Computed example of a mutant assay.
Amino acid sequence: MSIIKIYGIRNCDTVKKALKYLINKNIPHQYIDLRTDSISENEFKTMLDVIGLEILINKRSTTFRSLTEYEKKNINYELVLKFPTLIKRPVLVQDKRIMVGFNEKEYANFLVN
């Protein structure tokens, strides 16, 4: 089993809760800050393949609402690099398993399997 990666943004309260959960449970993980480390195109494609655009993109965000109609309908890797807050947070990745958001019960199930 590979190390767990958690993608997020440092000042996001939900990301803080998820990181605290992983630390308190002594679960080894690698934190990737979407603003400073960015996401690789392969990682982005894997997320899209596994969970899809509807789950991955935060359509309630100010960033999403500020996009043009064309951009909203054509979200791609370059747009996510330019606006990392388009991605819902946190994104938990282990191998090809991916989970978006934070919920203690769902994390417990995800991390056991």
Rank of each mutant, 00 (worst) to 15 (best):
A108M: 10
R35P: 05
E69T: 11
L86Q: 04
Y77D: 08
Q30G: 04
E106N: 10
I9R: 00
N74C: 01
E54Q: 12
D95F: 06
F102P: 05
N24G: 08
E71H: 02
Y70N: 14
E69W: 04
G8L: 02
D49V: 07
Y31N: 03
I55N: 13
K59P: 02
K59T: 08
I3T: 15
I32K: 03
R10G: 13
D49C: 07
K16F: 07
C12S: 15
T62Y: 12
V100T: 07
Y107N: 12
K20T: 15
F44T: 07
I9D: 01
K82F: 05
G101T: 06
I51K: 05
F110Y: 06
F83H: 14
S2N: 14
T36M: 07
I51T: 04
E41H: 08
K96N: 14
N109D: 12
L53H: 10
I6Q: 00
R89W: 00
Q30K: 15
N113Q: 13
L22Y: 07
G52C: 06
I39Q: 02
V93I: 13
P90V: 08
I4W: 11
G8Q: 00
A18K: 03
Q30N: 10
E41M: 09
L67Q: 01
K17R: 15
Y77K: 10
L67G: 00
E106S: 12
I4G: 06
I9W: 04
F64S: 03
F83I: 01
K105E: 15
D37F: 00
E69Y: 07
I32N: 02
D37K: 07
F64G: 00
D33G: 00
E69D: 13
N103M: 04
T68N: 04
L19W: 13
K5H: 12
L81Q: 13
I57C: 07
N113G: 11
I75P: 01
G52K: 05
G101K: 01
K25Y: 06
F102G: 05
F83L: 05
Y7V: 02
I98Q: 10
K72V: 01
T68C: 00
I6V: 11
K105R: 15
L92T: 08
I6K: 03
D95H: 13
R97L: 12
L48C: 05
T63V: 07
K45T: 10
I9C: 03
D37V: 02
M1T: 15
N58R: 02
V80T: 08
L92K: 00
G101H: 05
K72G: 08
F83E: 05
I6H: 01
Q94A: 04
V93P: 01
P84T: 08
K17V: 01
Y31G: 01
L81K: 14
S2T: 14
Y21A: 13
L56N: 06
I39C: 05
P84D: 09
K17Q: 15
Y70I: 11
D37R: 06
M1V: 14
I51A: 06
E104I: 08
I51D: 04
S40P: 02
N76D: 15
K45N: 14
H29Q: 01
N26P: 03
I27D: 03
L81V: 10
